[in-house]
Design a protein around this nucleic acid. Sequence first.
DNA 1: TGCGTTATGTTATAACTTAACATAACAGCA
DNA 2: TGCTGTTATGTTAAGTTATAACATAACGCA
Lengths: 133, 133
Amino acid sequence: MATRGERMQAHVLAVLQQNRRSLSAYDILGALRQSNPKLAPPTIYRALAALTENGKVHRLESLNSYVACDGHHADETRVLSICDDCGAVAETAAPDVMNDLSKLAATSGFVPSRHVVEMLGQCGDCATPEAPK
Amino acid sequence: MATRGERMQAHVLAVLQQNRRSLSAYDILGALRQSNPKLAPPTIYRALAALTENGKVHRLESLNSYVACDGHHADETRVLSICDDCGAVAETAAPDVMNDLSKLAATSGFVPSRHVVEMLGQCGDCATPEAPK
DNA sequence: TGCGTTATGTTATAACTTAACATAACAGCA
DNA sequence: TGCTGTTATGTTAAGTTATAACATAACGCA
């Protein structure tokens, strides 16, 4: 339907895919301004909204930033593990977690439409010091 | 240790406890300015940081807002269910979920220090229409 | 009382997000 | 082709959320 809208989305996605770390909307804006100095925030936010909507990008609620989805797609909420040290973000499917959450919601009559599951901490690489003190 | 800091924290907490809904930092600021017009944002954010730190307040990452903890305290991460319609926030302990997350972290060597688990959707009251169409 | 420590006040600004409206690209049809 | 409706993008402006940096004041203790 929208072929023209996808151009901007592709640019934004490309920038995100060049990074293991999450980027803020303004990081993306800065990157894309190198080739198009007149870009304004709403354009970026619109692209991000579309990409998030259709699962190509995840928003990290705890950091107000964005990462490209790793691609192995199942239309299912992922657990996002975010390293406080190096910023790397890993994405994991966790059917068990989602199951538990569904049960929990059912118990109280809550009808969930969106889940946010994030872990902050240290990734394996950063947690294992190469030269311990 | 800090007896003097706790005064501001108590005021902030009191405002939050008067609401089932979450409040933004600026909502709180507005409320407290009625009795102290010169209050500035950093004061609120500092109080919120302290309260969040010691578990008396939860931050809703997906809404950038804050709720008082419901009090039944176990020093454990809670699942927060947030109603898109009425704004009510419910807090639930979910050992299963936390367990699953720990296992998942262990698998990848991730060392979590903080968990964020939020469900957005409709609470029981709002999901059950009184007069169905 | 004087000193070190920590909270608070104050000013300013940074960072994140969206509203609102103007313009331009495209799709389909007369 | 040229009109027209639709949707994306540009543009301006502002709203919202959060923090840096430094000044001041309260407190605890020697």
